[in-house]
Simulated scan of single mutants.
Amino acid sequence: MTQRIGLVVFPGFQILDLVALSVFELANAEAGRAVYELEVLSEHGGPVASTAGVTVDSRAFDRRRFDTLLVAGSTTVPPSSGGLLDFLRRALPRTRRLGSICTGAFVLAEAGLLDGRRATTHWHFARELQRGFPAIKVEEDGIFIQDGPVWTSAGMTACIDLALALVEGDLGLELSRAVARKLVIYHRRAGGQSQFSALLELEPRTDRIQQALDYAKKNLHRNLSVDQLAEVAHLSPRQFSRAFLAETGQSPARAIEKLRVETARILIEEGGQSVDRIAAQTGFSDPERMRRAFHRAFGQPPQSLRRAAARTHAPAM
């Protein structure tokens, strides 16, 4: 049976959110049949302009049923009209999945659909969402969150992770992985995974330091001493340490720990491997050392993050 997927847009929506529909389109191709029927919706129908100035055609709200409705976001907190809010309130009881992308969470919140639920949004707006809607439990560092039939995602490219998770729930892990390969991306990030990246945070200016970081990420299971990294960068250990600190604002040891913790967190949240194995794979000498590093980075042990990820992926009741 074909599932109707609706993406709700409004004047000033973020055009990147349309890529979520590409995930369902490619899922149809991989499945070899029309699993999903895709529609762009708006309150009044017709052309709707994005923040980029590009317009998309849309169909006006009506009383048709949708399997899944997703509300697009914007680069700011999006406007909410009475017609939009009424449409979403009516839709929730008769829609299997209702979700938001990025700041679209503010629209769901204003409609009262996130009260008492866990939710996320773009990290830049997470605290504003929490202040404005205290009945929501905002988890500002999640990629996406499912709470019953309601799904919310972080900003920008997180819409791909959200859509892949929906496809995985419908058609299985292998097909969703095939879609990810078609999109030329790593298979979707775990829902509880951090919105931030240690590598993006470091941003070295020279190729030598970048080369050392690339080597480190591929060899986290090794000791990764300053002498080793300096050799990769073709610098003396003293020159390397000084250049690394000047370019990244961190010592090599601190940066490597961040890379280890970030990689270990991904593996913890994905499940399937023991904590002991993940500790060895990411270069921690033992699980206790990894536990201490997790407390420094996240304020909680690996097991707590694994339980939180499991709750994120728990099926709706």
Rank of each mutant, 00 (worst) to 15 (best):
V77H: 08
T55A: 14
R90C: 13
A60C: 05
E39W: 02
G53Q: 05
S22Q: 12
P47H: 12
A31W: 03
N28D: 11
P93R: 03
G45S: 04
H44N: 15
A31C: 10
A29L: 04
L21Y: 02
G73Y: 04
V71D: 10
C102L: 06
L85N: 01
E39T: 11
V19G: 12
L85R: 10
L85Y: 08
D62I: 02
R94S: 13
T51A: 15
R33W: 09
R89V: 10
G99N: 03
A34L: 07
P93L: 04
L92E: 10
S22E: 14
A31H: 05
R96N: 14
P93D: 10
A27V: 08
G32W: 13
A52S: 13
R94L: 05
E30C: 12
S81D: 07
S22C: 05
R59N: 08
P79Y: 06
S80A: 15
N28I: 00
A91P: 06
G83K: 05
S22M: 00
D62P: 04
L88E: 08
G53S: 12
V56Q: 00
G82Y: 00
G82S: 03
L88T: 05
A20Y: 02
R33Y: 05
V48W: 08
V54M: 01
H44V: 15
R96C: 10
A20E: 03
I101Y: 02
L70Y: 08
T68M: 01
G99R: 01
L38P: 01
G99W: 01
R64S: 15
A27L: 10
R89P: 08
R33G: 06
D62Q: 07
G32R: 07
R64Q: 14
E43Q: 13
T68W: 03
L92F: 07
R90Q: 14
A29Q: 13
T51G: 07
S42L: 02
A72H: 03
T95G: 08
V56Y: 00
R63G: 15
F24M: 09
R90D: 15
E39R: 11
T55H: 11
R65M: 06
V71Q: 03
